[in-house]
Design a protein around this nucleic acid. Structure first.
Lengths: 349, 349
DNA sequence: TTGTAGGCGTTATCAG
DNA sequence: CTGATAACGCCTACAA
């Protein structure tokens, strides 16, 4: 025999607008209007007051699902990131959340691990939930997710990456400026043999970094050695390790490495140890992103600070613009970045 | 004059179940059943096949909003964290996401910064969106959020914290075991004057840490000095700094500090420098949580590894159980933790 | 096995 | 200014 302690915790059932209307002695459509900021102007202040008072008393909570069904708007924004455990993405997300909630939207968050299957699956769940807009931190150069979102009429904004897909606003940090800052810094320290580790090429970030590095090096007037640029096969510390091994096996070792991602830089440090190299006395190293906590790394990383929070915040702004006017021009917003000099870079030995 | 390139991108409009039904030449209720895993058993396989084929061809995507309105289930789980930028929470979230999506649920994520107003606001948006369940990483000892969620009949699971609220399943790491591990470790290194920094007391974690530390110290048989336990006023590096200053100003300085949070430990390290103390040669230090990247800190932190991902994953399992049977017993799931010895602890000087 | 019809809670479009 | 009514897309008793 199952004995259930009959606590009978009062579970107040949800109150609908109908109840509010009844208690306020108005028709439910009147109540609906009274509760709406703009519609309420068309209603006698007296009634508006009365309805709102009742609503407050009953703790009426409009059912967003029902409203969404009717209006065909879910007031929901989907955000897709590769991996929220990479500490730069929480910063973006906080920006997204703040701007969303300030505008009455709620954010759905999902991780794809850069896996196309996951991306598709997630997009489908997002679509099923009728998201009003999508923010991608995963955009590829040719991105099928964007493509199908567009077919469904869902506005998309890409953060941290550009895409060849047309009609997609982008909110990014200024990669060229960042890489240039790093190269200039190393050059000023006397380095003339600088190598770089760029991100994978399926995302815009990779190619942009390669291009930026080439140009920056040319501008400061040093010659690019053969094999001075390695492309990581992944966004991980391990990929950084692999890349570093390649660079350090070059016949002429670089005196400095620009790792276009702090994770790559961490991988480099591991490999430096393997090779018996001390950073920065034997070899200089920079990261990119100013990932939280890496200011306390050993050694603290010289890196580029990117305003991730603002990128997320602005992405939502652009998305709202886009939702209001889908045919408007697709903006590209580029945020300035900042050099943060710490102790992983030093005068050339 | 604004010239708009008339690309006329085909915006395929959403296909409803009615269209699927029409094309499959069945009534829409038949189509609905054919698409449902269990209902479809009551329908001729032939028809089921036909309907599903059409659905696939049309890329039919059920409208979760409409379904939710009808079934009064949103298939959505809300998760509230203090701050997703604290790298332990992304790990929990990934567990939550994985288990949710594996069960057909989607996760809503929001940050409260431990601000009660935010918590209430967020809960309201969650309720408006008809979440089916709530996972709190913010639970207080007496938690009004839990209270109002319960009134609305929303099951709640608390992660990483326990609460005095009844009827709330909890999924946590074993705090006592963790603190004991740390104290034993330090004791084995010869430390007899050990201090601790515990978290704020409005959350269960703080008091639990205090209690655990007292007991652990007693068990190894060393006497607790006066003022050996400081309570941080916050969950930040700065709070750790403030606490460390207090501890180091004691007439007899501790030879080791157990910081019950890696962030506190980072604050301690800052203050050690201020006091001209070297860690670990002058003073030993432990953190707690094994926060990502802090294995590369200077010095790398001895700490306690908590299975955050599993905690998140299991929290959803518990939540699903709860949703299925709200009157069942509220379980407490405690995960084992692990000592990770790194280089912030050493033999007593 | 399949069709009918009602309704989930809202908002929008009509009238009055 | 307010009330009546339909509709959003789906699910599910109930009927056939």
């Amino acid at each position: 025999v199952v004995r259930r302690t009959s606590k009978n915790l009062s579970t107040a059932k949800k109150v609908s607008i109908r109840e509010v209307a009844d208690r306020a002695k108005v028709h439910l459509s009147t109540a609906s209007r009274a509760l709406d900021e703009v519609q309420s102007k068309r209603i006698s202040t007296e009634v508006v007051e009365r309805v709102r008072k009742v609503a407050r008393e009953l703790e009426y909570q409009p059912n967003a699902i029902a409203a969404g069904l009717r209006t065909n708007k879910s007031k929901t924004i989907g955000m897709l990131v590769p991996d929220i455990a990479n500490p730069i993405f929480p910063l973006v997300f906080r920006g997204v959340e703040d701007c969303s909630s300030r505008n009455g939207y709620t954010a759905l968050l999902a991780n794809s691990d850069f896996d196309l299957k996951n991306e598709k699956r997630i997009l489908n769940t997002f679509l099923a939930r009728q998201i009003d807009g999508l923010i991608l931190a995963t955009a590829r150069l040719k991105d099928t997710v964007i493509e199908t979102a567009r077919q469904r009429g869902i506005p998309v904004v890409s953060v941290m990456r550009t895409t060849e897909q047309e009609n997609v606003p982008e909110v990014v940090g200024d990669t060229f400026a960042g890489v240039k800052l790093l190269v200039d810094h190393l050059h000023a320290l006397g380095h003339r043999n600088i190598a770089a580790i760029a991100g994978p090429q399926f995302t815009s970030a990779g190619p942009a970094q390669v291009k930026a590095f080439r140009e920056a090096v040319k501008i400061v007037g040093i010659q690019l050695r053969p094999h001075a640029i390695v492309v990581a096969d992944d966004f991980s510390i391990e990929a950084g390790q692999r890349s570093a091994r390649v660079l350090l096996s070059n016949s002429v070792r670089p005196t400095a490495i620009v790792a276009c991602n702090d994770l790559f830089a961490l991988g480099c440090l591991d490999v430096f140890s393997e090779f018996g190299l001390k950073c920065p006395s034997d070899i200089s190293l920079t990261g990119y992103n100013d990932t939280p906590f890496l200011d306390r790394n050993n050694p603290p990383l010289t890196t580029i600070r990117v305003p991730f929070y603002h990128i997320g915040y602005e992405a939502v702004n652009q998305l709202l613009l886009r939702m209001a006017n889908p045919d408007g021009p697709a903006s590209v917003t580029s945020f300035p970045v900042e050099l943060v000099v710490r102790r992983s870079t030093a005068q050339v030995p």
